[in-house]
Amino acid sequence: MKSQFKAEPGHWVLIGALALALYASYLLVAPYVGAVVLAFVLSLLCFPVHQKIASRIPDKPNLVAALTCSLLVVVILVPAILVFIAIVQQGIVFTKQSYQWIEQGGAEQLMQQPVVEQTLAKFNTVLPLGQINGENIVERLAEFASGFGKEMLDISTQVLANITGLLFGFVLMLFVLFFLLRDHRKIIENLHWIIPLSRSQEEELLSEASTVARSAVLGSFLTAIAQGAAGGIAMAIVGMPGLFWGTMMAFASFIPAIGCALIWVPASIYLLLTGDWPWALFLTLWGVIVVGSIDNILRPILMQGSSSMSTLLIFLSLLGGLQLFGLIGLIYGPIIFALTHVLIRLYTIEFRDFLEKQDKS
């Protein structure tokens, strides 16, 4: 038996005031919504660990939540600081070596290779972009090498200058995470009470949101870490800074269609042109078989998980989220698509009779 709700004028006033209050509240927390969403996703990932700690220390929710957050700090923050320092060091050393290689004539010798000259000649006959010659490329490489080193120094300086803001965001995320873990059951009960849907519909919405949020993190970030680690190992084997280029591959993995090939393909071409064709072949095979397999196999498995969204919808949600919200959009996009997908399914169930009647008319 469906309950009948008859809205009175006073109800609409209350609903309007509530909508305005919610919008004003959103404006207040909008600058920090990224930290709140990240805390929500981390709470889903950390909750199994939190439950295990709670089973060992019963009836002490504050202590259990504090221990879970402390464990997260040790697992994430400390390694992140050490890795960032090592990346900056390797990046600066690599740019200095690259600039010295260009200044000592290494780039000119590379441009004088018969294969390179023939390739440039074909480009000049096909592309209406003017004459491309080795001297112009060497000049561009020199500008890029010097500019890249300056960019690395600028980025590290900006990170150090914004350390207060980064620490504030991290502390805010931990603060929100603490309460999400401690009051998990109470928050879920309040959501069930507030949302004006049936319990089964509410559970389906919340379950889909949590599933997709979890799979978005696992699918995007764990795949990026795996590809970066695999690519970094290969780069280190061929004699390049493994940690630096592995990190670049991890970031490149978020680029749709191209991904890590943006890094390992030019590196393979460089090794081939400098005469190290065995290492060039090794890096190419590694990039295609190992790094490519991680992207083609691991990402769809982790992203789809138990969610009912198709791989196409997941891809579009990642692409749109990245374009609209930036890096955090890799979480926002799948959640928005998942909730929309569930709401459409609930709509078709709720209005099935009407839709079938309309379809037959």
Rank of each mutant, 00 (worst) to 15 (best):
A229D: 01
A236S: 13
W277F: 15
A234M: 10
S268W: 02
S253L: 12
P266E: 07
A261Y: 07
V238T: 11
S253R: 06
F251K: 06
A236M: 04
W286H: 06
I269F: 11
A229N: 10
A230N: 03
G246R: 12
L285M: 03
W286G: 01
A250W: 04
A236Y: 03
I269M: 01
A252N: 05
C260H: 13
D276F: 04
V288C: 11
W286F: 02
W279L: 11
A229M: 12
T284Y: 04
A234W: 12
G231F: 08
G246A: 10
S253K: 05
G231H: 03
F282S: 01
W286K: 05
A252L: 09
T247F: 15
Y270N: 05
G239C: 14
W277V: 14
F282M: 01
I269L: 08
M249V: 02
A252S: 11
A230Q: 00
S268C: 12
A261H: 02
F282Q: 08
W277S: 14
W245K: 10
L283W: 00
W279P: 08
L285H: 15
F254C: 12
L243T: 13
W286M: 07
T247G: 15
P278G: 15
G275S: 14
G242V: 13
L272N: 00
I289K: 01
P241N: 09
G239L: 15
L285F: 14
P241M: 13
D276T: 01
F282N: 04
I294W: 07
I269A: 06
S293M: 00
F254V: 04
L272P: 00
W245Q: 08
V290R: 05
M249Y: 11
A229Y: 07
G292L: 10
L283S: 11
M235S: 07
G259A: 12
W245C: 11
L272Y: 02
L283R: 07
F282D: 07
T284Q: 04
G239F: 11
I294Q: 04
G259W: 03
A230Y: 07
F282E: 10
M249H: 11
M248H: 08
C260V: 14
